[in-house]
Design a protein around this nucleic acid. Structure first.
Lengths: 362, 362
DNA sequence: CTGAAAGCGCTTACAG
DNA sequence: CTGAAAGCGCTTACAG
């Protein structure tokens, strides 16, 4: 017991073997318990297990890995851990990894001015050094980073919401369905002139939404009016930009009045499907200032179902892209390939069905 | 070039040495570049470096670690990565780690129902297996977990906002100063009856705030009235609780009306220092419903300066606990001890000065 | 200044 | 069923 005071070096397999009175080989076979490794007697097994328990033996990860075992670690690339658009995803990828005995190595590709403007390549490299079993790339498509090189280096890579690299696994939130859900809900609440506020109509993701929006309007027998679709891009800067100083995302607040002008004042909208929860929150605030009541005059539906949605006034009805589910799917794909159950180049694209969360804004 | 197609095994030191025409030893000495390891000729160095570059050599992390090098990895324990109270801390601990060439291994101790209710011990164990260089424990003091065992297992541990374990490094946001800043700002805006809304007066952290609040009131020559301090605990459930189903934190919304009754209606407060940004957001919403204008009738100051603060209506003036700075300090402490520059048991307590961020609510 | 050699802790054919 | 032995990729005294 007072051995503890002398050396604090953790016990190794040799220590266990010695204490159990067997060889390192047997101890190893008992403790690693791999497939069909029953090449030891029950007595030996018992002795080894007891010795291991008594010593508090834990296999050394580095040694196993060096010997060719998996690192049981997945790299996760994300523009910024604090990115409000992805907090849930990051959280659930990690949860999914832990539940199969793996870990997550989070890597911010931007937002660390101490190190440099863009660390995509740095992390790809570091992942290689550390021998990750796979990589989740959840960096927004518009952020820099050589995706091809990533996939080259780490064939077992899956993307979230980014189809740039063809033939690679990919999980995508179904934005078409998201827009449909929003419109369906608004129509069922009796809204007739439903507006759609998009950040940039040129983005494929926005086009998907618009398609869903139009499809559902038609299905509901509501008028499809060109004036009811707002394109932020046409009004100048519509993107949230990461501010390296404050490490926050700067939001184009001024644009919100343009949305209200175009959709509510000019087109007479009685409901708006907003680009995301941030747009929705800003819209609601500006509307109140202009004497427009939410939801009485104009109902609002957001997208993301972010923490935020509980705290706006009124609380925000929002479409949840189900990053929970996406996170699980991503890890599942990675794991199947890491375990050799699926070919690495099986580039399936999985769409995740969104969910409507009703609060008070619509 | 078409070698790539044959074997995708990354080049090792032997490959580099062979290509450079030197021994493994020399290659190693050149490439690891440790202290005073200039035991090689300039020519050899040049050849090795060139060979390494050509092959794209990257040292194998596991092998280095096995040979006794640091893992350059820090474990970070947190109740939940998605915990809104700590997102900034997690982000900045990681940024600080990366900027010294290290990584962060995030570990959620709760909020993963797939695995079990509490994974504190599991992660402590896993950190040991992986040989982290140190651990940041940012698990809220009221969450379960054997902190003593953690420190036993990982002597190089530092805590954030938790002084339970004596004699260990600790970084704490200065709540006394936070309350002073809030009161000072409100007083300078002409507020005379400043209320303080606390979650639970029995908590040491709340007591610190109250002390700062009283001290600053006196300094400003304002009345210190007992009725102006609200104790949530006295009114029943005041804690936000983690909901494992939704993986969100449930908030005691109903309590907010009690706050307004006690402080505004009964004590006539013209300003409130709220427990945190969530309380502040909920308070503002309830006040609007009751016809109380913010900030005209009652000014509100939050605490956290969370993402949320930009999106409430009106945007929330808040005290920033400067988790940015805290994250840096935590990593700094860990690193100094990992590098052997400081004794592991140097249990210094660092207080982080907060900062007032003025928006529109006060 | 250089290289042969030992060894970190583990896994796994291989011979007994 | 068991154990001696090789080897994963690296670092580092040690002898030349």
């Amino acid at each position: 017991m007072n051995m503890n005071l002398i050396a604090h070096k953790p016990p190794t397999l040799v220590d266990v073997a010695r204490r159990a009175g067997v060889s390192r080989s047997v101890a190893g076979r008992v403790l690693n318990g791999g497939t069909g490794n029953t090449r030891f007697s029950p007595q030996a097994a018992e002795a080894v297990r007891q010795a291991a328990a008594e010593l508090g033996y834990r296999p050394n990860h580095a040694a196993r890995q060096l010997r060719g075992k998996r690192s049981r670690t997945f790299g996760v690339l994300v523009a910024s851990v604090g990115d409000p658009l992805l907090t849930f995803l990051v959280q659930h990828v990690d949860a999914a990894a832990v539940s199969i005995g793996c870990r997550t190595l989070l890597a911010n590709t931007i937002g660390n001015p101490d190190v440099g403007p863009d660390q995509f390549d740095y992390h790809v490299d570091d992942f290689a050094r550390r021998g990750v079993d796979g990589v989740v790339c959840a960096v927004h498509p518009w952020c820099p980073g050589d995706r091809r090189a990533l996939v080259e280096r780490h064939p077992n890579t899956v993307f979230y919401d980014d189809e740039q690299v063809a033939g690679v696994g990919c999980v995508i939130p179904d934005r078409r369905e998201a827009a449909r859900l929003a419109v369906r809900h608004l129509a069922s609440c009796g809204r007739r002139l439903i507006g759609l506020a998009l950040m940039a109509r040129s983005q494929p993701t926005s086009q998907e939404r618009e398609a869903g929006y139009r499809a559902e309007l038609e299905a509901a027998g509501l008028p499809v009016v060109e004036k009811l679709v707002f394109d932020g891009q046409a009004h100048g800067l519509a993107y949230a930009r990461h501010n390296a100083q404050t490490r926050r995302w700067d939001f184009p607040v001024a644009l919100m009045d343009r949305v209200i002008d175009a959709l509510v004042r000019d087109a007479g909208a009685d409901a708006i499907v907003a680009h995301n929860d941030f747009w929705a929150a800003a819209l609601m605030r500006r509307m109140r200032r202009r004497g427009i009541r939410v939801p009485e005059d104009v109902a609002i539906v957001g997208y993301l179902n972010h923490y935020l949605a509980d705290w706006t006034d009124p609380p925000l009805t929002s479409i949840d892209p189900m990053q929970t589910v996406a996170g699980e799917k991503l890890v599942e794909m990675l794991e199947r390939r890491a375990a050799g159950e699926a070919g690495v180049r099986e580039g399936s694209i999985v769409r995740v069905a969104p969910k409507l969360i009703v609060r008070e804004s619509a």
